[in-house]
Computed example of a mutant assay.
Amino acid sequence: MMATRIQRLQQRLPKLYVDAFLVTNQTNIYYLTGFNLLQGDGFLLITGDQAIIVTDARYQLALEEFDSDEVVATISQDYYRDLERICQAMKIDVLGYETTISYQLYDLLDEIMTADLVPFDRLVEKMRMIKDSTEVAKLQRAADLHTAGFRYLLDQVRPGVSERHLANLLDYWMKEHGASAASFPTIVASGVNAAKPHATASEKLVEDGDILTLDFGYFVDGYTADMTRTIAVGSIDPELRDAYEIVNTARQAVIDQVRVGVRGDQLDAAGRQLIEEAGYGDEFNHGMGHGIGLSVHELPASYGPGASQVKLVNNEVITVEPGIYIPEIGGVRIEDDVVVTHGGLRVLTTAPTELIIVGD
């Protein structure tokens, strides 16, 4: 029988020299227990042999329906004074906590806890980095929906339609077909707006001759894909056509290097070098990609030229997203989601990557 996520964390407590670990991050609580506790509505306490959710009466019914052999729940009117009581009763002398907690919460814990408090940086996030087969299947489902959403949106793009309208159409379509929410504000950037890597959808109308970048991520069953495609609306500037080919070649060059053990800076160099050799080094001003899963930015948070400490591990899922952004003209970014395994790699996002021209 494989150890559960909670058991894996419990097994580590003695090596970390703590008696228990306090989890307050909503996504980490969901990852460990499968229970969706909104941020700030309580916590999960992991001890050597128990997992305790402490929350308030609003969650009473949901917890009664929550079927778990591992997790016990207690309803509280003062989460952290109850945490102190539990720690006293269970003789917890050293309590680990996440470095991502607010200063306000740290201040409160520091004041009321008699246990020693020890910070840990991204302990659960490092577990989340390595996906099991169920998680990969969910990410594949999410990616498939993104591919379908992109195909749907292609039929809606024409001169005269606004960026915001396209973003709204996509949002509605994705949610009607199984997505629960966007994992970041959808980017629909046309013409000169496409030169801004983080442009959001504006009132600008799409014009004939525009390049159009679509970058979106949606949660499906808790997991999010993250996909970018750039298309042409009619005939585009020849420089943008060239930039498109360079970016697409760079994307493939990076994907070809994806394997267990490769370093983040080596991966980045495989694509960045091609962009630099083409004379666009200054026009590629962000990292090559990042991890995805229950959040749109998971570990590795980013990999780029300085990411020598990032080493790909088995069953990690990352994005590959080179771009070229030419001020006053437009930009190109193409992004795929990739699973790295000992048996090779798998690209989850299967939407076409050759330049698609609409509205001709």
Rank of each mutant, 00 (worst) to 15 (best):
I29F: 11
A232L: 13
T134K: 13
Y30I: 01
L37F: 07
M113Q: 08
F21K: 05
P119S: 04
G293H: 02
D121W: 06
D19F: 01
E298G: 14
K175P: 10
A199F: 02
D56K: 13
G42W: 04
M174C: 09
V72E: 15
K126C: 11
S102P: 12
Q50W: 00
T224H: 00
V220R: 05
G178T: 09
A137N: 13
A73C: 14
G293D: 07
P327M: 05
E298R: 02
V320R: 03
L267A: 09
Y79G: 04
L145Y: 03
Q26N: 13
E84L: 05
E328A: 14
R85K: 10
T33D: 06
D242G: 01
A143R: 04
E276M: 13
A182V: 01
E245R: 12
V258S: 03
F35I: 00
E354H: 14
G289R: 02
R141A: 14
A270E: 07
R8H: 12
R58V: 00
S295G: 09
I46T: 02
T47N: 07
I75W: 05
L9C: 11
V358N: 08
E316L: 01
M90D: 13
A143F: 10
E64W: 05
M227Y: 04
D82P: 04
Q257C: 15
G264Q: 07
L170S: 07
Y172G: 00
G34L: 09
D67S: 07
Y80V: 07
E176K: 11
G191S: 14
P327E: 11
T33N: 07
S162G: 12
Y106N: 04
R8S: 13
M113P: 02
A57P: 00
G281I: 00
G40A: 09
R141D: 14
G304F: 12
E239C: 09
E111F: 13
T27G: 00
V192S: 14
I86M: 05
L214K: 02
G306E: 12
L13H: 07
A195T: 14
V71G: 03
E84F: 02
L355Q: 04
D121Q: 04
K204S: 13
I6G: 02
L95E: 06
Y280L: 09
G264T: 12
H297V: 15
D210I: 02
D107W: 14
A57G: 00
R164N: 12
D237Y: 01
I357K: 08
L37M: 07
M113L: 15
V72R: 15
G178W: 01
T319Y: 10
A182L: 02
E328H: 13
V72T: 15
I86A: 03
D242R: 11
A20L: 06
L117E: 06
D208G: 03
G264E: 07
N315R: 10
V161K: 03
S183Q: 01
D132I: 03
F35P: 05
F284D: 05
N36P: 05
